[in-house]
Design a protein around this nucleic acid. Structure first.
Lengths: 130, 130
DNA sequence: GTAAAGTCTCACATGGATGTCAGAGTCAAG
DNA sequence: CTTGACTCTGACATCCATGTGAGACTTTAC
């Protein structure tokens, strides 16, 4: 598929899709015209990229991780214990963040639960701000 | 404690500690001289901030989440409908963040799991960067 | 009381992920 | 063939988290 369709199917702008390519995260083939041709699997790949970026990983790290996903990944990681160390660190970092957010969520729920009866119904009737 | 000590104990630069204050994440009191005076609890708070930033949250979001962490926040009461709506939204955002990070974590776990036996031990013997 | 270390504010710089725009080439439909 | 939609490259702009440095004031140690 061409870049327009990938944009539509992923919700990621063409600008970013090209940027990801520049960073080595995607490598669409080129038509004679110069147009990029993406594989079906790139839709999912872009999803992973977005998710890992949102989780605070850099494109550099993601470039290391991506090739290890999918069927043939094990062999890559075998040759590179340092990558594994990096992954451990990222994993621990993420786990810590999740733990913090979870306690925050718990607290938030507790605060919500203190709402006197009736207030929730009142809130539900409030106009939704844009 | 003053900013230098907080810097030492958290490893976060003075520049950033002041920036976090500007963003409403910290509110040290001021000495007559103008020097910032931080509370003991701020050490932990800065830890939370760093974690959440590393997880990709913005300072704005963190400012919303922080009051829900640790000892504070226990005494908040949700009694007005507008506030309650805000809390709902915040809860949903938080839950979405957690879900996002969780799938990222799953991804990393999956990649790590593809490492053939032996590589982990090899990695463990690697020099820890600083 | 003086020197050194700590702190203040303010301003400018940087790097990474993004947006936006302009000019030129490509393709498909009438 | 022409028109309109799509794509290309490249440049510039923006936002945010961060670094760095200057010049002035405060605190600490001698």
């Amino acid at each position: 598929m061409r870049i327009g369709e990938l944009e539509r199917r992923t919700g990621v702008s063409q600008r970013l899709l090209r940027y990801y390519e520049e960073q080595g995260l995607l490598e669409p083939v080129r038509r004679p015209s110069g147009y990029r041709e993406y594989a079906e699997a790139d839709v999912e790949k872009v999803g992973h990229i977005r998710n890992l970026l949102a989780a605070g990983l850099s494109t550099i790290t993601i470039a290391d991780v991506l090739p290890c996903m999918g069927s043939e990944g094990g062999r890559l990681i075998a040759d590179c214990p340092e990558l594994l160390l990096d992954l451990y660190r990222e994993r621990d970092r993420l786990a810590a963040s999740i733990a913090e957010l979870s306690t925050a969520l718990d607290t938030l729920q507790a605060v919500i639960a203190t709402a006197p009866p009736g207030v929730a119904e009142e809130a539900a009737r409030l106009p939704v701000p844009q």
